Amino acid sequence: DIIVVALYDYEAIHHEDLSFQKGDQMVVLEESGEWWKARSLATRKEGYIPSNYVARVD
C-alpha cells in the first residue's frame, strides 16, 4: 500500500473530496493526475485528495 501523510489541512470542497488535517495518514487507492482517491487511516472515510497536499511515507 502507498501511505501518505498530510502536509497541510484540507477542507473538502465537493462531496466526493476527503477532508484531512496536517499529519493525518491516508492509504492511496488510486493515483490519477492531481487528485488521488484515498482512505483515511483514522476515520476509514474515502474520497479524493489534492496530491500536492501530501507526501509519501517511506
Rank of each mutant, 00 (worst) to 15 (best):
L41Y: 09
L7F: 02
N52M: 14
W35L: 12
F20T: 00
I49P: 01
L41I: 14
I49C: 04
K22Y: 10
V27K: 15
R39L: 11
V54M: 06
P50S: 06
R44H: 07
S40C: 10
M26N: 02
H15M: 11
I2F: 07
R56F: 08
K22S: 12
P50R: 13
S40W: 00
N52S: 12
T43C: 05
L41W: 06
G23V: 00
E30M: 07
A55I: 08
T43S: 14
E31G: 04
E30A: 15
A42V: 15
V28C: 11
S19N: 05
D24V: 04
V54I: 06
S32K: 15
G23M: 04
R56I: 10
W35K: 15
T43V: 05
A12H: 02
T43H: 07
L7Y: 05
R44V: 10
D9I: 00
D58L: 01
N52T: 12
E30G: 12
P50L: 09
N52R: 13
V5W: 03
V57C: 12
V54C: 06
I3Y: 10
A55R: 12
W35Q: 14
H14T: 05
A12T: 05
E16L: 11
E16A: 07
I2Q: 07
N52K: 12
Y48Q: 12
L7S: 10
V5I: 11
V27G: 04
S51F: 10
S19P: 13
S51A: 14
Y8F: 14
R44L: 13
E31D: 07
D58M: 00
A38I: 02
S32V: 14
K22V: 12
N52P: 08
I3F: 14
S19T: 14
H15S: 14
D24I: 02
V57R: 11
S40T: 08
T43M: 04
V28A: 07
K22D: 01
H15W: 12
Y48K: 13
A55M: 12
A12D: 02
G33C: 03
Q25S: 05
W35N: 15
L29C: 13
S40E: 09
A6W: 00
Y48P: 01
R56M: 07
V57Y: 08
G33W: 02
R56W: 07
H14P: 02
H15E: 05
A42K: 14
D17C: 04
E46A: 11
G47A: 02
L41K: 14
E11V: 10
E16K: 09
I3S: 05
S32C: 07
R44C: 06
D17S: 12
Q21D: 02
Y10A: 02
A6R: 00
E16D: 15
N52C: 10
M26Q: 01
D24H: 05
W35R: 15
Q25E: 15
A38L: 03
V57K: 14
Y53H: 08
S51C: 11
D9N: 09
V57H: 09
V57I: 13
F20H: 01
H14Y: 09
H14G: 14
V28M: 08
M26P: 00
M26S: 00
M26H: 01
E11M: 03
Q21S: 13
F20K: 00
R56Y: 08
Q25L: 06
G33N: 05
H15D: 03
D17Q: 15
M26V: 01
A6P: 01
Y53R: 08
L29Q: 13
V5Q: 11
Y10F: 13
D9T: 03
I2C: 05
I49H: 00
M26K: 00
R44Y: 09
I2N: 14
K45T: 14
V27Q: 12
H15G: 11
R39A: 07
V4T: 02
R56G: 07
G33A: 06
K22I: 09
E11D: 06
W35T: 15
Q25I: 04
V57E: 05
Y53G: 08
L7A: 03
I49G: 01
E16H: 12
A42F: 15
Q25A: 04
S19L: 01
G23N: 14
D9F: 02
V5K: 03
E31I: 15
A38C: 15
R56H: 09
P50Q: 08
K22P: 05
Q21G: 08
L29M: 11
V54T: 07
D58S: 15
A38E: 00
E16R: 13
E16M: 09
S32W: 06
W35V: 14
E46K: 09
